[in-house]
Design a protein around this nucleic acid. Structure first.
Lengths: 245, 245
DNA sequence: AGAATACATATTGTATACAAAATAGCGACC
DNA sequence: GGTCGCTATTTTGTATACAATATGTATTCT
């Protein structure tokens, strides 16, 4: 191929290539194309996206600020870890933030945002149909990012976004094998998305909050299904009180 | 004077000057020495802290990621706004995050962190005694940052830190005049800090959560005392249900 | 006089050369 | 044979020159 990874056909400014670079990195982190802890090679990325190191490094710093990457002094950037500890933190913070965000989304969503959410749900359903784990994780991520925009609370957004990063990565880790139970869970998740859209459109904050809880419980059960046996090298202990079906 | 703002006597590397620059900017934002919306002059900052534009701009991006600054394409950095909308968001998010953080702090604090918290409280009390609004805001900020470290939940920290930035700035805005009521509130806040330390030391999560709520209520009442009349150019409406004493 | 446009100036963004630090490879020594 | 320490190489961090964009000013035209 004559075009490198980040190149588009014509007429793109450095700024354009910069945003493509940032989006490529985000996607790679979310889909585990870049695994947690992986080192990033500045020279390689510069070549691939045809930008010099200065703007590249600005992108890296930006993504580090958003939680995708970690910068170590004199030792470059790597993909943020997804450790045992972070999983514990995740289980604690997610239900709280998700609930609050959904509630606010129902109260504050604009018509335009609702349209965007419906579009994201089309994406999600399409990814389900196609059976692409990556696209499903990305579409789901997109869906929930939009609910974050709807909520529009600048104090909650950074936490939500960090949760969504690791939610996607955890999903990619644990949702791989295609079991019967899993397919059923995905169908249910999809239906919950529809219900969420309806609740937001109806500005029903109570329903939205309840759906956030249900949606989270489904997701958590799905994760626990895989975490329990041996997926990570430690006992999850008190984190998994409810036994999965 | 022969030393510019960011210069220390001897033997400091660029890295040292960089962190001093970052800290100076943070302090300036928190204390309103740099007002919300103020433009930053790159050249001026480079001169003052004796670094070139490259590392300066990295610092700016970093602080933008943390919520102190806002970067506009081709138009440089300015101090993040503190708008009417953000105040509303603040009142919604703060009690939730503060409560969760205090609860987790009580569960997870290490002995070393507790020592640091006690030290921060000494700072705070000293600032109260000296009557310095700036130092009080900074010391209070420091105190609560430590509780955030204690909680140690990477998903909650970014939201907490954003809240703390604007909490300091709101305090600086509204706590200026020295009234009787205000002095009393500050004394009470100081006592609550002591109680918080005790609860954390006792690992009493319930007490810590309750104290977080009390502490927030006190702070909120204090703010409303000034917001209600005319401090900002709009009605706060349903945000202020409880009338201040 | 007022608006609009062209030009001059200042500021921001990018590329590249250089400096500093870390890593890797090699050899000496125990 | 293994470990320590040294040099060579690679990688990261910084300074600076240059390009692109925005802003301010003067001039022209209606």
């Amino acid at each position: 191929m004559s075009l490198a990874m980040g190149e588009s056909a014509v007429n793109d400014s450095v700024g354009d290539r910069k945003v493509r670079l940032a989006e490529h990195l985000k996607r790679s982190v979310l889909t585990l194309a870049l695994e947690p802890g992986a080192d990033l090679d500045e020279t390689q990325l510069c070549d691939a996206f045809d930008v010099s190191r200065t703007p590249l490094r600005e992108v890296l710093r930006e993504l580090a600020g958003e939680g995708y990457l970690t910068l170590r002094l004199n030792r470059g950037a790597r993909v943020s870890d997804l450790s045992h500890t972070t999983l514990r933190d995740f289980f604690l913070a997610a239900p709280m933030i998700y609930g609050a965000v959904m509630r606010l989304a129902a109260l504050n969503a604009t018509a335009q945002q609702i349209e965007a959410l419906k579009l994201a749900q089309v994406e999600f359903r399409e990814a389900l149909r196609a059976g692409s784990t990556e696209n499903r994780a990305l579409a789901n991520n997109h869906f929930h990012q939009i609910t974050g925009e709807m909520a529009g609370n600048i104090y909650l957004l950074p936490s939500l976004n960090r949760l969504l990063i690791d939610h996607a990565r955890i999903s990619m880790t644990f949702y791989r094998p295609q079991t019967q139970q899993m397919a059923q869970n995905l169908t249910e998740a999809c239906q919950q998305h529809d219900a969420i859209i309806a609740a937001i459109e109806a500005q029903d904050e109570g329903a939205a909050a309840q759906l956030a809880e249900d949606h989270w419980n489904l997701s958590r059960n799905q994760i626990e299904l895989f975490v329990m046996p041996a997926a990570l090298d430690m006992p999850m202990g008190e984190l998994s009180r409810k036994t999965p079906a």
